[in-house]
Each structure stands twice: as C-alpha cells, then as structure tokens.
Amino acid sequence: MSEEKKTVLNVEDLTVAFNMYQKGAFKKTDLEVIHKLSIDVKEGEIVAVVGSSGSGKSLLAHSILHILPKNAKVGGKIEYCGKELDDKYVKELLGRDIAFIPQSVDYLDPLMHVDKQVIGVYGNKERQREVFDRYHLDERVDTLYPFQLSGGMARRVLISSAVMEEPKLIIADEPTPGLNVEMAMETLNNFRELADKGTAVLMITHDIDLAFEVADRIAVFYAGTVVEIASTLDFIMGRGFLRHPYSAAFVDALPQKKFKPIEGTQPYAGNLPSGCLFADRCPYRDDECAGEIPMRDLRGGKVRCVHAT
C-alpha cells in the first residue's frame, strides 16, 4: 500500500437531509439522515461500507451519483480525481468511468432487451457475451426484458453492466444478496481483478463476511455517519486493533468472534443527539463527547472519537 496512490473518490463532510412534512402538519422540517460523513477510495482499492440496513448506507451512493429524491438537501464536498463531482460531471462519467451497481432491477429500462442495455453506448456485443458467460447468463438471457429476470439473474445482469468496461470507480450497493455462493465469490473476485488493474471500488454491504473477504479497508457506518475507517486486517485481528468503541462492540458481537452484544439501539434520523452519536451506549463517555466530534487520523486509519487511542 504505497502512499502515492491517487485518490479517486473523496467525500468530505457529506450531510444529507430530507425536507419532510411532519405527520399531519403543514410545516416542513429537515430530517437529517447523513451527518458529516467523510470517506475516500484510492485507485486499486476496495473500500467496504458496513452497517445495518436502513441506516442510510445507500444514500451515500445516491448522493455521489446525484440520484437522491427531490426533497433532499445535500451539503459537503464530493470529488472525483480531485475535481468536484457535480450533477453534470457525474452524468458525463457514468457508464464509462464510473459504474453503479444498484440494489434493484428498477434501474434498468423496462422496455429494452437486457443485452442492449448492458452494451450501452460504449460497449460491443462480443464483450457483452464474454461478461455474461462469466456470470453464467446464457444466450437466451440476451433478449429478455428486465421483468422476465429472476432476482439472482437481475443481480448478475446489473453486475455485468458495471464490469463491461474497465471503470475507474465502481459503486456497488449491496451487490450480492440473491446470489448463490459461487456467483457471489465470482463477483468479488471480479472486483478484486478490476481493483488490481487500478479500479477503485466502493462496496456498500451489510455482510461483514463479504467485507472481510475482499476489502482493503472497511468503513463502519453508524447512525448516518462513518465512525471509523481502518484496514480490514485490523478488523480481523479484533477489538484491540480498532479505534472506535462502536467498531470494537461491532466486532465483539460477531457470531464468529464473541457473540456478545452491548445494550441499546442506534439512534435514528431526526432524533440524532448532538455530539458523539454513540455516546449513550459508550463506556468511555464524558463531557467532551457532547461537543462536535471531528474525524481524525489515527494509526493509519480514521476515527470519529475523542478518546480513541
């Protein structure tokens, strides 16, 4: 892991709020769902974002790609190769330099055969067949419409379209549910190959085993922000090597580790405490935790905690 690797994706202090009506009221309030999130992905690197589903992980992908719903307010900075990634720029890059693997087949055009969609503007038929073969999609699949695909097939079509070219950045939102073990491993190996050729991969998943398998670094998502980013090795080694008390609790709760839970629940959007989001469940809590907690560098990783050593 040399230092001179270029940062492909850099997200700094991303904040996303939804402007919503309260139940039965006529006034709109902002419901903050992502709070000052920072994450970066370098070339040739797979970064996994892990956390419970529904905690706002997908919104990170949607913010980067500018596909949030209309009532979302976005703050902070998103950069691609050092240049601000605005709405226009992302449309220019999407499909060639940036590939997105969405969670659902709804992102496909329902009125178009899947092979044509996968080939898109830049691809060709041979390459498409090659990729489909790799994902065990035979020729009959080429001329199917999206609604005719089963869950697993749809997932494989979506992955195929992302790896058609050699994109510089892949954003994968839960790429493997619905795939059998072999297909899931094939997908991960494919990501690894692309990463080894220089592609940056941001993989959003709730499956920690998956992250352990291929990721170079793991970002832990808690209550709408990233509390720690560290190398996968630190996570495998266990709590002593981690920085944030939540990451440590997270690893302790894994069935393959101690299977020991801490008490309490994650605070949810609209009800987030000021200061440290984990404070109410943290054994090291003190007055300092009530202030704004910045993300800081620590032992080759990053952490959002004032007490971490």
């Binding site: 956390g51 419970s52 589903s53 920690i208 609790a249 709760a253 839970p261």
Partner: peptide, 14 residues
C-alpha cells in the same frame, strides 16, 4: 437477523 446490524443480531438471539 440477516438485515440487522450484528449488535442487534446478537441481542435478539440471546
């Protein structure tokens, strides 16, 4: 507990 975070998973199973 497949869709839940691991801490909640451990809580529920216990």
């Amino acid at each position: 507990t497949t869709m839940l975070d691991v801490i909640t998973q451990a809580q529920i199973w216990h």
